[in-house]
Design a protein around this nucleic acid. Sequence first.
DNA 1: AACATTTTTTGATGTATATCAAAATCAACT
DNA 2: AGTTGATTTTGATATACATCAAAAAATGTT
Lengths: 186, 186
Amino acid sequence: MNPIIQQFKRYGFLSSEAETAIEGRTKHFFKKKHDHFLKSGQVLSSYFVLEKGLIRAYFYRDGKEVNTWFGEENQIFGSILPVYTNRPSFENIQFLEDSEVYAISVEDLNELYRMYPELNLIGRKIAEEVCVILEERSISLHIESASERYQSLIRLQPRLLSRINLGHIASYLGITQETLSRIRRY
Amino acid sequence: MNPIIQQFKRYGFLSSEAETAIEGRTKHFFKKKHDHFLKSGQVLSSYFVLEKGLIRAYFYRDGKEVNTWFGEENQIFGSILPVYTNRPSFENIQFLEDSEVYAISVEDLNELYRMYPELNLIGRKIAEEVCVILEERSISLHIESASERYQSLIRLQPRLLSRINLGHIASYLGITQETLSRIRRY
DNA sequence: AACATTTTTTGATGTATATCAAAATCAACT
DNA sequence: AGTTGATTTTGATATACATCAAAAAATGTT
């Protein structure tokens, strides 16, 4: 089954008509390691699911890349900003491994919301779950030391550490790679 | 007009039946400065609006209070966590001025979502807007220095500074009051 | 107005993390 | 297996911010 539909069904009921409509608008494609999904400011991003693969979201600050999150299999993600404002995201999304992707564009999603208002319950649940995740992330950045943030990451997304290099992890944690190296040495 | 309804209408259409149902479930009350709205873990929080007043949300860390956000007039807020999970928030909410409040409980809100599914569009929009705000907050904590975070606060919520003491502001920014004082001195 | 309480500022010193430079290790390719 | 480039670690030093203590200023109360 289309993994977007599979993810949607975790949040609420989907009529078979809505399911068919989503099916017809789902894009399926493959990307190579280092490819970009979205160039910031170019394309409206959308919700998507990795059947297989790994991605990072990042933006530029003083010419340097800053990672904001990582995505693995069996998650639904995308930028909320374009869904909410209909404007492009400032985030770039890059594949860190060869990946198989199912995606739905913002335009299609908004049309689906119009045609099948029942989808708004699922959209609400997804946005609410993202709020909870972002709240935890803010608190972690607000009060935890570098080493505590690293421990939190190990606890919450342990598999990431074996798939992503330490430079990317350090950037996500908001510290330098040197500091992360020293933290790991204990 | 009931300011909860007023806020809801900023996000989408509300049928007159739904409006009446919300009206009937809205609680209206007054609170004194220093009162608490919710004690964490006790009561399920809800969406609410300040007709007049000022609040802070905070939690405890190592016995000390840490502020997570402030709320003023003409905003809708509450913790998403209880709405999403139906479990109490870890946050405490305290009034920083004598306040007039309109509120709707999580139980009532969830019943309204069931009775008037159209409300899910509004709920989705609200959650999506909160996502955008939380994303900005995370980025601020991720990459900005103490002084930059202070400047961002001045830019985004200038009126807060004249209504809230510097201890509360410093806690919100994730720095000590002494550091904030030195930042302000330039 | 005088006193008590709260809030803000100042000073001295300590600590976590950044920066810069280089070495060591690992991975990829021929 | 040897060479090249990427990743990770190590060392020396700098900086932003914390901590502790106290003074100064502002605010509230009788």
